[in-house]
Design a protein around this nucleic acid. Structure first.
Lengths: 149, 149
DNA sequence: TGGCCCACCTGAAGCGCTTGAGGTCAAGCG
DNA sequence: CGCTTGACCTCAAGCGCTTCAGGTGGGCCA
């Protein structure tokens, strides 16, 4: 998992990927756009070696990314963490905003699920030649469509 | 909304966008990738004019897109609609697959919401200098993190 | 010592759109 | 009549990644 390198633990990109849940490509991408890094390299091979501090930070980023948080919010998160400003309130707001975002997404998902489930039922009715069933479902689909924005 | 053009109704891209909920850019994009179209043009201006058949089709696509259905599944949907194959079963399967997809997304969303809500609580506790509260929340966050994949 | 494989590297292209720049056509107004 | 306005056009770039192509360093085996 980790190799010792002059007394300090260092982690390869593959292991960093396993630890954080971010793909190797994403780790390179985040470095390229300046969200993390620059990551120190192994002298001879030029391979990335993530040090203790970076490992924890990127592990946390992996969780935030897994919630669908935007890159901009992750940037703010890192800024609040590291800055000596009184950032507890800003952090709370950042996370509350993201809870609301998820909440809204969940609600939209329910509407979508209902619409798609009705469509599946419609075609199931057609499949078994059930014209009555079809006629019952059609107006329900029309109603469900309204909620889809 | 619609203009009459030699007895046939035709719809501008702006109105098509309002009807379908797809942006004008998306309508052009879908045409470019061959999902819809080619759309006939007004002789003199070169502007797109969507005809009756296309309007209904694109309206339906708008609903499917609003559920997060993939472009490939929308292609299949159109193929099943139009083909003379016995497509009711294929349609049912397509929609059932998409219901499952949404169902899984909803479940993941719940986990994410919990994680983010705990993070918000953590910073709220820090904000009011509540060390006990903090200590109560930290292990809950660790537990919630497990579900984030 | 040569050969092989694996982990890693970079750069470019693709996905599904969105955004923006720059230009055309038709209608309305002073 | 020229001018503005608005709806539309095309082409190119950007977003947040993923995927792919082509190349290098290091360890292990014969």
């Amino acid at each position: 998992m980790t190799t010792t390198d002059g007394g300090r633990a260092s982690v390869s990109i593959q292991d960093m990927s396993k630890i954080s849940g971010l793909s190797e490509a994403t780790l390179r991408y985040y470095e390229k756009i300046g969200l993390i890094g620059p990551v120190p390299r192994d002298e001879s091979s030029g391979h990335r070696r993530y040090g203790g501090h970076a490992v924890e930070m990127i592990e946390a980023l992996g969780c935030l990314r897994a919630t669908g948080m935007s890159v901009q919010d992750m940037r703010d998160y890192l800024r609040f963490l590291d800055g000596r400003e009184d950032s507890a309130a800003l952090m709370r707001e950042l996370f509350e905003r993201n809870v609301s975002r998820i909440q809204e997404e969940i609600e939209r998902m329910h509407v979508r699920r209902r619409y798609l489930a009705l469509k599946a039922e419609l075609w199931a009715a057609r499949e078994r030649g059930d014209a009555d069933g079809e006629n019952r479902i059609v107006p329900e689909i029309a109603a469900a469509r309204e909620g889809l924005r």
